Amino acid sequence: MPTERFYNLPAGKKNIIKEAAMSEFANVPFEKASINKIIKAAGISRGSFYTYFEDKHDILAYIFEDVGEHFQDTWEECAKKSNGDLWKTIGHFMDESVFTTKEKFIQLMKNIVDGVQLFGVTNHLSKEAINEQLPILNIMYESIDKSKFKDQSIEAFGVLISMLFFEMFKGLEWYFVHPEDKDKIKKVFNKKLEIFQYGICKQELI
């Protein structure tokens, strides 16, 4: 992870460095990303870079950390707006997060996922990612009204959330290929939410 010296930088400076790194990671596969290009775009020296980060894995970890904080804030805002209703929260989140995600970040993610030599990147981040995911899942869980859930455990909630976000990311991928289909994407996603919420089979009276 970044050093304390980096975290003590003004917010504007941190953002410039983050945006420079995101641009480079979006332009080329991660293993080909150039630290020299990042520092040139950010307007910092190579020496400064290495007082902030150990390597490019560190700055990628910071990008994910920053995205995670934004994700948490957006989720809590959507849950509050929806009075804890999961299905309305997901709908608001789709509008306020998915459709406003920068294409640069999506391309960055594609470069990471598509690169055959990038298992080292994800393994490098995996322990920290797990540690970050658990508190976020707890926050998501606590912000939702679960009184109508048949299984109110956090384990069941986590499974449901992972399925919902899988469908959301499929919509995101569709959106960046065909942004003109935004209304159609929302309609398809809402239909999937309806099936998740109510099921597909008729309920038999006992």
Rank of each mutant, 00 (worst) to 15 (best):
R5I: 11
F6P: 02
N8I: 04
L9S: 02
L9T: 01
K13L: 06
K14Q: 10
K14C: 00
N15A: 09
N15L: 10
I16L: 01
I16D: 01
I16E: 04
I17F: 03
K18Y: 07
A20R: 01
N27E: 15
K32M: 15
N36Q: 12
K37H: 11
I39H: 02
G43M: 00
R46W: 05
S48H: 01
F49E: 00
F49V: 00
D55C: 01
D58C: 07
D58L: 03
D58M: 05
A61C: 11
I63F: 01
G68F: 03
F71A: 06
F71G: 04
F71E: 06
F71T: 06
F71H: 12
E76K: 12
E76V: 14
E76G: 03
E76W: 06
C78W: 03
D85H: 06
L86H: 09
W87M: 07
T89N: 09
I90F: 07
G91A: 06
G91T: 12
M94H: 13
D95C: 04
V98E: 11
V98M: 15
F105A: 05
I106Y: 08
I106H: 06
L108M: 14
L108W: 01
I112Q: 04
Q117M: 13
F119Q: 13
F119S: 13
N123R: 10
S126E: 09
I130Q: 12
I130L: 09
Q133R: 15
I139Y: 07
I139F: 07
M140A: 13
S143N: 01
K146H: 15
S147I: 03
Q152A: 10
I154G: 00
I154L: 03
E155C: 09
F157D: 03
S162L: 12
M163E: 13
M163C: 14
F165C: 09
F165G: 08
F166A: 14
M168A: 11
F169C: 07
F169K: 12
E173W: 08
F176L: 03
E180I: 10
D181W: 06
D183S: 13
D183V: 09
V188N: 14
I195D: 12
I195V: 15
G199T: 09
C201W: 15
L205K: 11
I206N: 13
